[in-house]
Write a protein that binds this DNA or RNA. Structure first.
Length: 402
DNA sequence: TGTATACATCTGCCTCATCC
DNA sequence: GGATGAGGCAGATGTATACA
């Protein structure tokens, strides 16, 4: 944790932590040093002094525990509420229906920052509850006004840019805004259980239970703000007409509202016997999907399933062999797969957001191809790891033999 | 940028062998 | 018998690295 963040947290809790007091004791103000050297140790600095003053007041518990912005006077509250409302007519609010989420919060965030800088004298313990009732009603009315404005903007949803003519998405639209892309790659299915010794496990997995998966998301930051707009899976499957092969299915959202349908359909592809396999999915994709299920008020079907992550066995085996252990590198070096016109994963969020704003679907189709190749590569990589480990086990006894 | 994992390193504790 | 040091082990900690 940075010192700056620590200071911010201290301000938020009112500077009452033991650490804060200790710091306060050892860094007296210049005036305190000059006027009362002996008393300097007990005289806190300006900001914590305010907090200490709060704690000394009746009802200080409320004041200390209340978020600082609330204590920053009605003037700040009004400013935070009024700024977006006033600014909205000056711009094409509907054009920023989705993007505006971040932008619109900046005035409020700035107000919070400003509140944190409000001179201590203004942040009295009574501030949170001292707002007159009519004023609170005004604030609520202001909030309702903002909500109405926002809802109208979302419903209008006109794109930022001139609408692109290239809006074709691959696959079939199986639900409003949800596209299913199907593919089948004829190939022999491993005929025996795949040993998981390469992953330091003693068991084996039935190939028919394996489900390779990979997501494309709106960002890497994690947390609740990031969502998966595409889920790709691959499994070995015997089709009545096409025979045996690798079945690749991808779900792609073209609207925010399609997320619930996508999560429901993905759940239907899982069974209690399913063994998930991914590349760093245990740390990234799975937690992300679990969060999305939770936010959608749906039970999380992932936690109960077995999960074999290929990243760590790959890293163990190939660390130092190539420049890194990214999936693309492993794919190129180990599997000799060369992608044509591949869109880097880091550009996937921009491709999707651009499409949402009315842009071309071309890059989104490239994201789908990238995701398709990822899950196919996972199936190849696992077979390669199993084979390499089996080979090691054959060689090592020969080396140990006298 | 957040998160989970593997791996390397550090630390403390215990056991054992050696020396005085 | 007590003091000391080497070695092994487990747990804690820090770092690197994938993911879009």
């Amino acid at each position: 944790m940075s010192a700056e963040r620590l200071r911010l947290l201290r301000r938020q809790v009112g500077g009452l932590t033991p650490t804060a007091r200790k710091d306060d004791a050892v860094i007296p103000t210049r005036a305190q040093r000059q006027t009362a050297p002996g008393a300097a140790a007990s005289a806190p600095r300006a900001l914590p002094r305010d907090a200490v003053a709060q704690s000394a007041q009746p009802g200080s518990v409320d004041a200390a525990s209340a978020p600082r912005p609330q204590a920053a006077t009605p003037a700040m509250t009004r400013r935070a509420l009024q700024a977006p409302v006033a600014a909205a007519p000056a711009r094409d609010s509907s054009a920023f229906a989705w993007v505006d989420h971040d932008v619109r919060h900046k005035p409020a965030g700035a107000a919070v920052d400003a509140a944190a800088r409000v001179p201590p004298v203004r942040a009295t313990p009574a501030a949170p509850t001292s707002i007159p009732a009519p004023q609170r009603r005004t604030d609520i009315a202001g909030l309702r006004k903002m909500i109405g404005l926002r809802e109208r903007a979302v419903s209008a949803h006109t794109p930022v840019r001139a609408a692109s003519t290239d809006r074709h998405l691959p696959g079939n639209e199986i639900a409003p805004g949800l596209h299913l892309i199907d593919a089948f790659l004829p190939q022999p299915i491993p005929h025996q259980a795949l040993s998981l010794a390469f992953a330091k496990r003693e068991d084996a997995v039935d190939p028919m239970n394996l489900l390779f998966f990979d997501t494309e998301t709106t960002g890497l930051a994690g947390g609740t703000g990031t969502r998966a707009f595409m889920i790709g899976v691959a499994d070995w499957y015997t089709d009545t007409t096409q025979g045996s092969g690798l079945r690749v299915r991808q779900l792609m959202m073209s609207t925010m509202a399609a997320e619930s349908a996508m999560l429901d359909l993905f759940r239907s592809w899982l069974s209690p016997q399913t063994v998930l396999s991914s590349y760093n999915g245990r740390c990234y994709d799975a937690p992300l999907l679990k969060t999305r299920y939770r936010l959608a008020r749906r039970g999380d079907p992932i936690s109960a399933l077995d999960h074999v992550d290929l990243l760590f066995p790959t890293r163990r085996r190939y660390r130092g062999t190539w420049e890194n252990c990214k999936l693309a590198t492993i794919e190129r070096q180990l599997l000799r797969v060369v992608r044509e016109d591949d869109l880097p994963g880091s550009e996937a969020p921009a491709a999707w957001l651009s499409y949402l704003r009315g842009g071309s679907a071309r890059n989104l189709r490239r994201v789908a191809e990238h995701n398709h190749q990822d899950v196919v590569t996972l199936s190849l990589l696992m077979q390669r790891l199993v084979a390499a480990d089996a080979q090691d086990r054959e060689v090592i006894p020969l080396l140990d033999a006298p």
